[in-house]
């Protein structure tokens, strides 16, 4: 699917088209491909979503990159465009190092320019498990810190909750896949994971998580409880990931 076909993205489409054109113009033959990933690639972009791109290059030259500085600042401001600049030769190593993110890219991507750099990409199971645990641990530490540092300010807690949604969902998708139970989207994966837990009714937590992500607002008084439940949910994901075997 090319940018021109991304009609569901509305005004984002024009910004993407312009940015891809300018990237081509800046990097010329050193540009291998441009890949859109995440919710934008699924056509499920929300007002609060980032627009994530992977720009795969053959070389990263200063003069070429400088040509993209201004267009990127405009695109960032207009649609929260967040590009990742990768060299072709780095793809396998980066995919192993950031396995959860690349797991998501492998599942939700749209090629905007060039040839698909991830078509043949295989991320090792060991790398995915290791990275899954690392991301979950990272998230747990961050949520604890935010619970303590922002706990007195409800509106700040909501932002922390909203920011936790994407990594939690990606981790759930990776976890289920590693368990051999592939889910549809990362959001569905988290729902599926929550439904598999018998300890606590987490469904309302997921509703609040979606609400915070989409509107950056929650009902007054529920932020503290929600953030603490997210810490618990992260712990559950981490516990399940500990049971994964590398074989």
């Amino acid at each position: 699917m090319k940018v021109a076909e991304l009609e569901s993205l509305g005004p984002v489409q024009a910004v993407l088209e312009d940015f891809v054109t300018r990237t081509q113009s800046a990097f010329g033959s050193d540009l291998a491909s441009v890949v859109l990933f995440g919710s934008a690639a699924e056509g499920k972009l929300r007002a609060t979503s980032d627009v994530n791109l992977v720009v795969v290059l053959r070389r990263f030259e200063r003069a070429q990159a400088e040509q993209l500085q201004r267009p990127l600042r405009v695109a960032q401001a207009a649609v929260r465009l967040t590009p990742m600049f990768l060299l072709e030769s780095e793809v396998p190593a980066v995919a192993e190092a950031f396995a959860v993110k690349f797991d998501d890219i492998l599942h939700r991507r749209t090629l905007l320019f060039g040839t698909d750099p991830f078509a043949q990409l295989v991320i090792s199971r060991a790398a995915r498990i290791a990275r899954l645990k690392q991301v979950l641990l990272n998230l747990q530490l961050r949520l604890r810190e935010q619970f303590v540092s922002r706990g007195l300010r409800e509106e700040q807690l909501v932002l922390a909750i909203a920011d936790a949604a994407a990594p939690l969902r990606s981790c759930a998708a990776t976890l289920l896949e590693l368990e051999g139970r592939a889910a549809g989207s990362p959001k569905e994966a988290l729902l599926q994971f929550v439904q598999s837990l018998s300890e606590k009714p987490w469904l309302s937590l997921l509703e609040r998580l979606s609400q915070a992500r989409e509107t950056r607002r929650l009902e007054p008084g529920v932020g503290t409880e929600t953030l603490f439940e997210l810490i618990e949910l992260t712990r559950c994901l981490l516990e399940r990931s500990e049971r994964l075997t590398e074989a």
Partner: peptide
């Protein structure tokens, strides 16, 4: 308004985890 220090810390865990 609290100075807008909303970017949080991340507890020292960098990387592109999400």
């Amino acid at each position: 308004c609290g100075g807008g220090s909303s970017c949080g810390g991340g507890g020292g865990c960098g990387g592109c985890g999400s």
